[in-house]
């Protein structure tokens, strides 16, 4: 169940990592609100075209831009072209992320780099690349997808947790730096959400995890999308620098 926010209609919002999981639900929810969803894709033109069509069918406008969040040059070029020639972007969801579970003692430097580069540096660079545009746009809202793991830590996820915790410090700084320009920046920390990432867990592991969750179930991507819509809308206009857990009570 996702509330309708009238100000999201025609709002131009970039969602990174919209191909699947939480990002896809967010893109679809925004399209259903009539927003103009901008998404990035890395190379698969056919998949990008299919996503564009799906978003348009959901009721929104959609534009796919070809760039990887770790490629600053390509990203800046694509975003500059879009914001100059099409429209300023007034919403950003930094959602692209990767995870690789490894014990600290087996964690390789290149694995740390790839996780930090995508999850933390990628989000920072997209936000940076759009910051001039944000000064021209109105009612800008940025939503950064962290993780409950960024708050509570998790065995085998040292690098992932570090990248997600880093996003929180980054978001609070952006919130302070741009508040005078009415640019807001908030963070969502999802807990266990039903996605391909968690589908890969075996049944027993899922049961074990569910036992630790007071609401005794995994969350849905739609529930995260619902909060994201709220944070992008003026309905949350007095919130910035906030970190919101959505974890069924896991980290109380």
């Amino acid at each position: 169940m996702i509330a309708t926010y009238s100000d999201l209609k025609d709002k131009v919002i970039l969602v990174t990592g919209a191909a699947r999981g939480i990002g896809k639900s967010i893109a679809l929810a925004l399209a259903a609100q009539g927003a103009h969803v901008v998404f990035n894709y890395r190379g698969d033109e056919a998949k990008a075209a299919a996503l564009k069509e799906e978003l348009e069918q959901a009721g929104g406008k959609a534009t796919g831009l070809k760039f990887d969040v770790t490629d600053y040059e390509a990203m800046t070029k694509a975003l500059d072209e879009f914001t100059k020639n099409v429209a300023p972007i007034s919403g950003l969801v930094n959602n692209a992320g990767i995870s690789k579970d490894t014990l600290l003692l087996r964690l390789k430097p290149e694995e740390i780099s790839s996780i930090i580069d995508t999850n933390l540096k990628g989000s920072m660079m997209v936000t940076q690349a759009l910051s001039r545009n944000f000064l021209r746009a109105e009612n800008v809202s940025i939503v950064n997808m962290s993780s409950i793991v960024g708050l509570m830590g998790n065995a085998s996820q040292a690098a992932y947790a570090a990248s997600k915790a880093g996003l929180i410090g980054f978001s609070k700084s952006v919130a302070k730096e741009l508040a005078s320009r009415n640019v807001r920046c908030n963070v969502i920390c999802p807990g266990f959400i039903q996605t391909e990432m968690t589908d890969a867990l075996n049944e027993k592991a899922k049961e074990e995890y569910s036992k630790q969750i007071p609401l005794a179930r995994f969350g849905s991507t739609e529930e995260v999308a619902s909060l994201t819509c709220f944070l992008l809308s003026k309905a949350s206009g007095y919130m910035t620098g906030e970190v919101i857990k959505m974890d069924g009570g896991l980290y109380i």
Partner: peptide, 9 residues
């Protein structure tokens, strides 16, 4: 510094 950026824009 932010005022300056805006002014230059």
């Amino acid at each position: 510094s932010l005022d300056m950026v805006e002014l230059m824009m």
